[in-house]
């Protein structure tokens, strides 16, 4: 059981900014109305961030991973999250075996 100082710093930083985002609405709400255009842009943040995050693993690794990502995306249209994970993992293993 160890705690690395940089890891602790990272956890603290993440915890503080996360709490700030969650508290912010309590203070903002009574004071301002978010312009609709800005709200729409903010709304796109999660998808944009998550897409960027998976880019190296899903799009910039090789054809097997890109294909597995496509299969997972199609599965996500119908299946719950856990099933999508299972399908994605199986597809990655399969395409890697086929394509080397």
């Amino acid at each position: 059981m160890t705690v690395d100082p940089f890891t602790l710093l990272a956890i603290l930083g993440m915890a503080v900014v996360t709490y700030l985002t969650r508290l912010s609405g309590l203070f903002l709400m009574s004071r301002i109305t978010l312009p609709r255009r800005l709200a729409t842009a903010l709304d796109a943040v999660p998808a944009a961030v998550l897409m960027a995050v998976i880019t190296p693993a899903a799009l910039a690794t090789g054809p097997a991973e890109t294909l597995a990502a496509a299969v997972a995306a199609i599965a996500a249209l119908r299946l719950p999250m856990l099933a999508v994970v299972a399908v994605g993992v199986a597809a990655a293993a399969l395409f890697r075996a086929i394509l080397g």
């Binding site: 930083g13 996360t18 978010l34």
Partner: peptide
């Protein structure tokens, strides 16, 4: 390793920005 704490903090902020809207509503 060592943890890139600043990048990790910024990315946590970006991923959680949506909470501003949820909190406000």
């Amino acid at each position: 390793h060592p943890a890139p704490w600043l990048t990790l903090t910024v990315s946590a902020l970006l991923v959680n920005l949506r909470h501003v809207l949820m909190s406000a509503s």
